[in-house]
Write a protein that binds this DNA or RNA. Structure first.
Ligand SMILES: [Zn+2]
Ligand SMILES: [Zn+2]
Ligand SMILES: [Zn+2]
Ligand SMILES: [Zn+2]
Lengths: 149, 149
DNA sequence: GTTGACCTTGGAGTAGACTCTAAGGTTTAT
DNA sequence: ATAAACCTTAGAGTCTACTCCAAGGTCAAC
């Protein structure tokens, strides 16, 4: 039986975060003490641990809500229900990675084209690219770099 | 000389977005017509193109503000000023990719461990992992998968 | 002279995940 | 008895990048 501050400290989170999770239906303490304080049971703590582990693999609170709703009556649910949620997330994460890798590629080309020296930025290839290149076509830049002279 | 709707349409964006950029100091029309309409010059359009190209490589509006402030007085600035912004972003993007790849790895292990079949989720390895594994240590799961029988 | 397509403004709403504030009640120690 | 360290609530604020709304002004066409 833990009070909000204890449980929060144990898991390295803010007590406000626990109130926030409660307001959003993720985790409610199973009891209140006479003075109105929230009282969390060991089961509550386990549910919190579930939430935090799911967060640690990238799930949003909305997705965790879905996972929890499967978890609480898992006898009625099947493996594919669970795996679908994971595979769905896997796709979203992969798409986000792909987008960021496109960013990284373009940024690397921009960086490689610029001498990074201390001459005036008037002829900086990065600025020139952003001023006039076709979007997402910085490949011209990759070839011609200029020297800091 | 373009009105807000024209300029927006030319660039495939919403007129509201242009007003938003103006409010946040990214792009103000260089004139207003007698009736109070915004009037964008060709220079304004080029500045917008700069903003959109920067967005296309992943820069946030805050970062674009910084790039623009360098661009407008580039004669006073040097290549390293520009390259620093790009390299800074490159690092942030790489870090975000690394985080998402950790997510992807964990999610893949979770997915691989689950049969995805139609038997009760009571013994689903995904739920078991989220209930009891050490965070970010789903490697045990990778080995022992169960069959849908 | 009215319809329709444009434009203006200020302000509110959205999503996600908190984080903080104000105003007050409770418990424990000194 | 009073300070500190807890706890309560409702509600506001943060960040990002828009997007939408209401109420109204402008302009060209028919
Ligand atoms: Zn240079
Ligand atoms: Zn340069
Ligand atoms: Zn199974
Ligand atoms: Zn399973």
């Amino acid at each position: 039986m833990f009070r909000i501050g204890e449980l929060a400290k144990q898991h390295g989170i803010n007590a406000d975060t626990l109130r926030f999770y409660e307001k959003h239906g993720l985790l409610a303490p199973s009891a209140r003490s006479d003075n109105g304080y929230r009282v969390y049971s060991r089961d509550d703590a386990q549910r919190l641990a579930f939430i935090l582990r799911a967060k640690a693999v990238g799930f949003s609170l909305g997705e965790i809500t879905e996972l929890l709703s499967i978890e609480v009556n898992k006898s009625q649910r099947v493996c594919s229900d669970v795996k679908d949620v994971v595979d769905d997330k896997l796709m979203k994460v992969s798409e986000k990675i792909a987008e960021l890798e496109r960013f990284r590629f373009s940024l690397q080309l921009l960086s490689d084209g610029c001498c990074g020296g201390s001459h005036s930025a008037e002829h900086c290839t990065i600025l020139q690219a952003l001023e006039s290149c076709e979007p997402a076509d910085f490949s011209q830049l990759a070839a011609e770099t200029h020297a800091d002279s």
